[in-house]
């Protein structure tokens, strides 16, 4: 009885919130479209220009509803992040600020665009000040309840590890962002405030389509098509979920090479040693 009760609560929660809990792996949802990412495979690395474009899409589009609570501004300037190399005004070379992102002028400028609540001051009052690189990227919501009530009961999930938290990873996120142009099946009722998206668990999503042609302006002159923005922001979110991925892979090759060499040496030692005994 207790279990039935819990299952009902859970089912209601899933329906109301639209949280994608099951997977296309179960065969009920459309499989994400394949896409070739720069960071795919053992040799893949993030494309820094793409990460910068992706940050613009996040900051100007996604951030209206989705938090990035496990990231600070300084993370954007960490080694391998979108802004670790900066071309200072009047210089024709790039300076590496990854050792101390707090000094990174680009990061400081990005952070300063946000107003952060700080305090209490010496009079016990809270106050607002421009953001610093060490601040967390602020959530669009004061609290979860506010986020829910502004979105018809569906809380927009935090995006810090979103590509790791969904089956299909980056392919799923990109497909979901582009998945609004399908015809609604006749047997599916899509209530007002919800949208049909075949990649979503339950095929109904509370998030409206958010990417439109030239919805953002890219500084590098790349045309801001819907496809381009979806790929860029997905690459950025993949980086946000695992900012040390490039370091992981490059260290991996060294470790594997070392272990392979060690294995060969030990095998040779084993063969030489055991050749002396009948076995």
């Amino acid at each position: 009885m207790k279990n039935i009760h819990r299952a009902l609560i859970a089912a209601a929660g899933v329906l109301a919130v639209g949280v994608p809990v099951a997977a296309w792996a179960a065969g009920e949802y459309k499989k994400p479209e394949e896409y070739t990412w720069s960071f795919e495979g053992p040799f893949g690395t993030f494309d820094q220009a793409q990460l910068q474009r992706g940050w613009v899409v996040y900051a100007q589009v996604c951030a209206a509803c989705h938090s990035l609570e496990h990231l600070d501004f300084r993370h954007l300037g960490m080694d391998g992040g979108p802004f670790d190399q900066v071309q200072l005004p009047g210089e024709d070379y790039y300076t590496d600020f990854s050792a101390d992102p707090n000094q990174n002028p680009v990061i400081r400028a990005i952070a300063a665009e946000y107003m952060i609540q700080d305090g209490p001051d010496e009079f016990g009052d809270m106050f607002e000040r421009p953001g610093r690189p060490s601040d967390s990227i602020p959530s669009p919501w004061e609290n979860e309840q506010q986020g829910r009530s502004a979105n018809g009961g569906a809380y927009p999930p935090d995006l810090s590890v979103i590509t790791k938290a969904r089956y299909g990873g980056p392919e799923y996120i990109r497909s979901l962002l582009l998945g609004y142009d399908y015809e609604v099946p006749e047997d599916l009722e899509v209530r007002p405030g919800n949208y049909y998206n075949p990649y979503m668990s339950g095929q109904v999503i509370a998030m409206p389509p958010v990417l439109f042609e030239d919805g953002v302006v890219y500084e590098d002159g790349t045309a801001a098509t819907v496809d381009q923005m979806a790929a860029d922001v997905t690459a950025f979110l993949t980086w946000a979920g695992e900012p040390h991925m490039d370091a992981r892979k490059s260290l991996g090759f060294i470790v594997m090479a070392y272990l392979l060499f060690l294995s060969i040496l030990l095998y040779a030692a084993y063969k030489v040693l055991w050749s002396r005994v009948k076995h």
């Binding site: 929660g13 899933v14 809990v21 099951a22 991996g252 594997m256």
Partner: peptide, 27 residues
């Protein structure tokens, strides 16, 4: 080392990157 460096999440479960929520049961 292959798993640690090149396939770290292969043996895990995507749902465990969603913070625990007593009100939402995974399917």
């Amino acid at each position: 080392a292959f798993f640690v460096f090149f396939w770290p999440d292969a043996l895990g479960h995507a749902d465990n990157y969603i913070e625990a929520d007593p009100l939402v049961t995974p399917a």
